[in-house]
Design a binder for these strands. Structure first.
Lengths: 136, 136
DNA sequence: TATTATGTAATAAGTTTTGTTACAATTTGT
DNA sequence: ACAAATTGTAACAAAACTTATTACATAATA
């Protein structure tokens, strides 16, 4: 994760939670994060696919949470926006003639998988509500 | 971590552990990982600063572990090569006029810090020896 | 029907990551 | 002393990734 996608997603979801039952526009959300509204819409698109928000087109359109914030755990947010492993990438062309080069990726895979599982378990204990209610 | 630095560092250290008391050259190590030897030397440089390996210049030069592999925990490797937070970056220009935009980075910081601490604690329970001895 | 949003493609700009070349400095063996 | 081999780095190039921007079709409302 060398990007701002998780931070952006949490920001969006927090705003939606702070304004329940209101269709917030991507333009308005973008004004709070201070990024381009297309970036917000792209992220909203991903959050919709994950079942975390619903959006409505047209005049008076916008987005709101798809379910109560206490039912949104942060691992779901992470899953939605992060497609890399915590410990990074593996070297793809390691030497098969070297005992280490030949096996390292399967061994790293065990470690990487275990690490990702740990993170997700941790994030699974935290809800959007926990995060959001810290704000005045 | 959207790079191969952790995987590369672990690969290097595993090779050094598998060949104790031998000065492995960056060229030889590079041949196992299948990357440029300069990349290996750059990583070795960082691992030296972290006190994990020692290198020797000149003919018959190379690198070896600075201490027994059971004394090298993986959080030290992670610290040496990773300078980003697990959950990524934060948006830098959030709107100070918005209650959420104004406070979000300090709140995210708490979450990000806690997450990094969890990962490091986990990696601290694993040693290079644990990893290395999996290889035939 | 005019207006205002979303959804998304295409492209540009910026940043990060990895690869490569080059060479000074160092160490060893002869 | 000298040749050979290696580290350590700088400089730059190439590739990949991230974010910004423009444009516009589609949809929904008043």
């Amino acid at each position: 994760m060398n990007n701002t996608r998780f931070a952006t997603a949490i920001h969006i979801l927090t705003l939606l939670d702070q304004h329940p039952e209101v269709w917030l526009t991507s333009e308005w959300i973008a004004g709070s994060i201070n990024v381009n509204s297309v970036v917000v819409r792209r992220e909203l698109s991903v959050l919709q696919e994950a079942g975390l928000v619903i959006s409505r087109k047209g005049k008076e359109g916008g987005s709101m949470l798809a379910k109560p914030s206490q039912d949104i755990a942060l691992d779901a947010v992470y899953d939605a926006v992060c497609h890399t492993e915590v410990l990074g990438r593996k070297n793809q062309h390691t030497n098969p003639l070297c005992p280490v080069g030949k096996q390292i990726n399967t061994k790293l895979d065990d470690l990487f998988t275990e690490t990702d599982a740990l993170l997700k378990k941790f994030l699974g204990t935290k809800t959007l509500r926990d995060f959001s209610q810290q704000f005045g």
